[in-house]
């Protein structure tokens, strides 16, 4: 069922990772994404993988949820790794017709797969441990300087947080609609692609209609609760960096340093 998607969900908790300042978490995450694409040998890859593993363990969220979030993208992972496997350069170690496998291809496949997996795990870790409100709040604060050039920072972050709030609601609604249309004999399991896309119309039209209705309702509800844009707004939870955040920065710095050192002393394999 659609509801089983774990990616993008939030699991309330009190772990070290949960307690990190969301702004710090976002910065660390961005640095991590950058550094993961700078791993060119197994040593630096191991450093980033170890760093990911450390975060997952510290988040105290059962591993099955991380596996679930991987399951969603497993298809993409396989496709990209297969492509990389066959498009390597250098000495051929196995050939069948035009398909040839090289050591370089194997390395590439391993790297691409590991990078995507680390990326998904790290972003899952971020969304699992940070509530959507915290996340958007942090983005709003990080982007505050853009207010100077009249970039609508508050509006955008409000939209993001509302969108995130309605993800589970709309997923549930999709589920219900699918059941209801199936009860009217809609066939969504068989037929060619064209037929299947057409079979989605009875789901998508009501879903859009209801999304608009909800949007209208939520706007009314927000006005009733004295919402008038970002000016003069306060927040219940004020953010401040703690020793924990500093430690996460140091850890990130060590990883960056480690990857650079590895890259200098060990030759690249891809």
């Amino acid at each position: 069922m659609v509801r089983d998607v774990a990616f993008g969900q939030y699991f309330p908790g009190k772990s070290i990772i949960h307690r990190l300042d969301p702004r710090g978490k976002i910065l660390v995450f961005i640095a991590f994404v950058a550094i993961i694409f700078c791993t060119f040998n197994y040593c630096s890859l191991a450093v980033t993988a170890a760093f990911t593993a450390m975060f997952l363990i510290l988040s105290k969220i059962p591993f099955k949820f991380y596996f679930k979030s991987l399951k969603v993208i497993i298809f993409i992972v396989i496709i990209t790794s297969v492509f990389n496997l066959f498009y390597g350069t250098g000495d051929v170690i196995w050939q069948w017709g035009i398909i040839k496998i090289t050591w370089n291809g194997i390395h590439r496949a391993v790297f691409v797969t590991s990078r995507i997996i680390c990326l998904i795990l790290a972003s899952s870790c971020l969304t699992f441990t940070t509530s959507p409100t915290e996340l958007t709040d942090a983005i709003e604060r990080l982007m505050k300087p853009l207010n100077v050039i009249h970039f609508p920072v508050h509006e955008i972050s409000m939209m993001m947080s509302l969108a995130l709030r309605f993800v589970p609601t709309l997923l549930e609604e999709t589920d219900k609609l699918m059941q209801a249309q199936k009860a009217r004999g809609a066939d969504m399991e068989t037929g060619n692609i064209f037929k299947r896309v057409k079979a989605l119309i009875p789901i998508l039209v009501p879903l859009f209609v209801s999304a608009f209705r909800r949007a209208y309702d939520i706007a009314t509800a927000m006005e009733c609760r004295c919402y008038r844009g970002g000016t003069g707004r306060t927040r219940m939870k004020s953010l401040h960096l703690s020793a924990l955040d500093v430690m996460s920065f140091i850890a990130m710095g060590l990883v960056i340093g480690g990857v650079i050192v590895c890259n200098i002393f060990i030759p690249s394999v891809i």
């Binding site: 219900k176 249309q181 009217r184 009875p202 009501p206």
Partner: peptide
Amino acid sequence: FQYPEYQLF
């Protein structure tokens, strides 16, 4: 189903 009016399309 409950609230079947939401399935009209």
